[in-house]
Design a protein around this nucleic acid. Structure first.
Lengths: 217, 217
DNA sequence: AAACTGCCAACTGTCGACAGTTGACAACGT
DNA sequence: ACGTTGTCAACTGTCGACAGTTGGCAGTTT
């Protein structure tokens, strides 16, 4: 009962999902190499579809290709983090502006809900899960209703997750982030595009700084 | 004298260059389909490398993949243009801001040179070649010294070129564009990030509007 | 002992062939 | 005449095998 199974998703597509997961969770650690024959056997597919999956992930920035040498998981680097956050700021500030002028009531409900859940979680003594941070930004970006910007932001956030994979969080930073989120929602609710952009920029530069200090240790 | 030639660029890499050129110049017209066996034979390579090239161009947005149906050159669409320019504005406004604070004297010389060449060309009765417009934006982006933003901008501009491929230019719009460019250079020269961003936004919304009117005809 | 040279295994790049799916055309039934 | 169903060619998805390149290791030389 294992037909070539192109029934709903190609083997290459499945391989992309599995590999992405393994790279983002650190199961394949940064700096390590991806052996085509080895991984292909482990996934039970041939090298063709796997190569396509590898190239696809490389185009997303989750793998780095070296001719005749293979694919590597890019390692965290200080300059890389800065450059990445410049791109992220450009995209998310624009998204925040658009969200402020296009958000619907449903968007606001969703944003408030995510913030509320974060607070509940925090007061319960739990650490602020990165999952909720991601959910907040995703919700905000969807409220901007700009498919191309949304797509790019998701790719960048993925790369941030990759760099984050071996980083710990400290509570004060988490608290500051939640405050930023609340302030962002307020600006979006008021339709204040300029303020939304400003707050987002401050928020991201704070997060970036935290990642940098957490990296040099 | 035709070894597999991985000497300097893989077959897939060469195929990417050739295909990109053919798509951007309209040699492969929008809406048309890319037949793998046909193109592979025409390029004298097998389907493997060609598939990689196709997937790569698809990741750049120059081709659209449909499962079990093949790759298509995306056709120009009004909503697509708007969404694309929202992304472009987000990126290039940020780049303009960064350029205003990071530009070197060499950057300024280059920018002035491109503007001057545009003026000369225009006064000589020649139409404002899109080549010079692209050169200006590229120069400005390089002055921002943000590799990730630069990379994304180049991809977006490529897609704009694709949509532009079947569009004509009108002189008044060309004149306005050159004025915008001059104003941008001035703002960057003064290190006025806010103004650079504002001018860029106005410039891009003008170009976008021109493309939209030129499209509905 | 250190450096250089030649060989070798491992892996990527490429190819040709097979299997499965899709859209279209033709034949059939209503 | 129109809609339905069965068949078929064309094309994509996938596989296994071969060729070329790379980095490392052993052997040799100074």
């Amino acid at each position: 009962m294992t037909p070539p199974t192109p029934l709903h998703l190609s083997l290459a597509g499945q391989a992309v999902d599995v590999l992405r997961e393994q790279v983002l969770t650190g199961e394949i650690p940064p700096g390590s190499r991806v052996n085509e024959v080895e991984v292909a056997q482990k996934l039970g597919i041939s090298r063709g579809p796997l190569r396509e999956a590898i190239r696809h992930l490389a185009s997303e920035g989750l793998l780095t290709l070296v001719p005749h040498r293979g694919a590597f998981v890019p390692a965290a680097d200080s300059d890389e983090v800065k450059a990445l956050f410049e791109l992220r700021a450009a995209l998310e500030c624009a998204a925040a502006e658009l969200a402020a002028s296009r958000r619907t009531d449903v968007d606001l409900v969703r944003l408030h809900e995510v913030c509320a859940e974060s607070r509940r979680n925090y007061k319960a003594g739990q650490p602020f899960p990165y999952r909720l941070d991601l959910a907040f930004h995703q919700t905000l970006i969807d409220a901007a209703r700009s498919p191309h910007i949304a797509g790019q932001v998701k790719l960048v956030q993925q790369r941030v997750v990759l760099l984050r994979s071996a980083l710990e969080d400290d509570p004060p930073h988490q608290h500051a982030s939640m405050d930023d989120h609340d302030e962002l929602v307020k600006a979006v609710e008021d339709g204040d595009a300029a303020r939304a952009s400003t707050v987002m920029r401050r928020h991201l530069s704070r997060v970036c700084a935290q990642m940098l200090t957490s990296l040099n240790r």
